[in-house]
Design a protein around this nucleic acid. Structure first.
Lengths: 236, 236
DNA sequence: CTCTTACGCTACGAGCCGTAGCGTAACTGC
DNA sequence: GCAGTTACGCTACGGCTCGTAGCGTAAGAG
């Protein structure tokens, strides 16, 4: 059983948090009783990020976070089902704050921008140690997977959609024939960009610098324009 | 301090395992004393894979694996420093067995083949739950990172190098100007392929089917040939 | 037959988990 | 104000996992 409760993240934006029991997380209106402390939320999430930097994912404990935040351990468990859920919300706030896509004038420049931005986010020790861990956890927890998707992944995917729209408006890319093909294509591009940056940063453990971003962008944009020109396997 | 000890994996191939104390892991010749049981090695690694399938990474414990393998818990700790190291060796054996690159006649066909092969490996519950977890762990453990690299990542990268060599022999791709550029390029392609497949499988949680593999291959090969034709950002 | 190393077993302190129980604090509606 | 309701802090707890120590035994090397 999963409850979806609208909650307010540090950025002031509304997100959805899944909690264990029915935690009635409202901010302004409604029910009776003592309301949950928004200060506690902020303190807990900030403490979580701090603990991630100092201890990393595996050595981070709920008790430690509670102590840092100055709240009781039970308060954490009243709001989050466990470490994974807590950490997802804690790092999701960073994605909220640091992802944007200013128009840089060309498809290539836009791609390069988003690559560097995403890479900068992944270079942070909080995200570096947390992201793969929660993804690993999500392979056995569908609710957690949905939480990651809505709190983190979808925010990145938006950038791809915006970038493609701009490129089409500029005439750099053709319009998609139908909606489902467009969606498949966007998913593909998203997996390629996000996957390459993540793999470079976390598996190969080498920096996404300007040079790499340029080479990657050339490869991707080349592929996109080639595909637009009707490329198929020459051996087929 | 790290020791590198040649050991024999299930496939019969020789791999390198890092153990905590000086465990003198020899098979045929050398020192005095009772030799380590190769049967125990096989049983432990098989038990680890079995436990990964049933329990997943987070609920797998050293005690459980020892019980399944029919050995004492202390024996595990005599050979592996902890859960991460053990799991890396356990899944590395799968990569040894299931990665190969038959010549399919064209660059596109080779890419598609390796994508599907890698995806099939990632669809297994053992690898699915383990790979991201150990990568996450490795962000705070350099020795573990090296172990992952030599036991898993380098085996995949070899396929990229073989594929490129073939493509160059076929005339599908030009020869590289210098060695360092060639290495950078191979790293880029590797991060793109492995990253996209991993991201698609584990983050987007959608299958790498024939259709996706074809679309991805078209994108990548298109980018490679475009780059070979001297593509640069048209807005630059 | 001795030396050396690996193994199985038991036992242990330490740490974290997640929850129960209780008294208190904060806010709502009457 | 006052009752009703919900959140909070605190304490305590059983249960589990960790990683190690100690000891007697098993298996090869010389």
């Amino acid at each position: 059983m999963i409850w979806l409760i609208p909650g307010v993240l540090p950025g002031g934006k509304v997100a959805f948090m899944t909690s264990a029991p029915p935690p009635t997380h409202r901010t302004g209106g409604g029910r009776t009783g003592r309301p949950r402390s928004a200060d506690a939320d902020r303190a807990i999430l900030a403490a979580t990020r701090e603990a991630l930097v100092e201890l990393g994912w595996s050595k981070l404990t709920m008790g430690d976070v509670a102590a840092r935040a100055g709240v009781a351990k039970t308060t954490l468990y009243r709001r989050w089902a466990g470490k994974s859920e807590l950490v997802v919300d804690a790092v999701a706030a960073l994605f909220d704050e640091h992802l944007e896509l200013p128009d840089r004038g060309s498809l290539g420049a836009d791609v390069e921008g988003v690559v560097l931005q995403f890479a900068a986010l992944l270079e942070r020790p909080e995200t570096k140690t947390a992201l793969m861990a929660v993804v690993a956890e999500s392979t056995r927890d569908d609710a957690l997977r949905d939480r990651i998707r809505s709190a983190i992944v979808d925010r990145q995917k938006t950038l791809v959609l915006v970038g493609r729209e701009r490129a089409q408006a500029r005439g750099e890319l053709p319009a998609e024939p139908d909606a489902s093909a467009a969606a498949r294509n966007a998913d593909l591009i998203f997996d390629v960009i996000a996957g390459a940056v993540v793999h470079r940063t976390l598996v190969s453990a080498e920096p996404v610098d300007a040079e790499w971003a340029r080479a990657f962008t050339a490869l991707l944009v080349g592929g996109l324009t080639a595909a637009a020109a009707g490329y198929t396997d020459p051996a087929a």
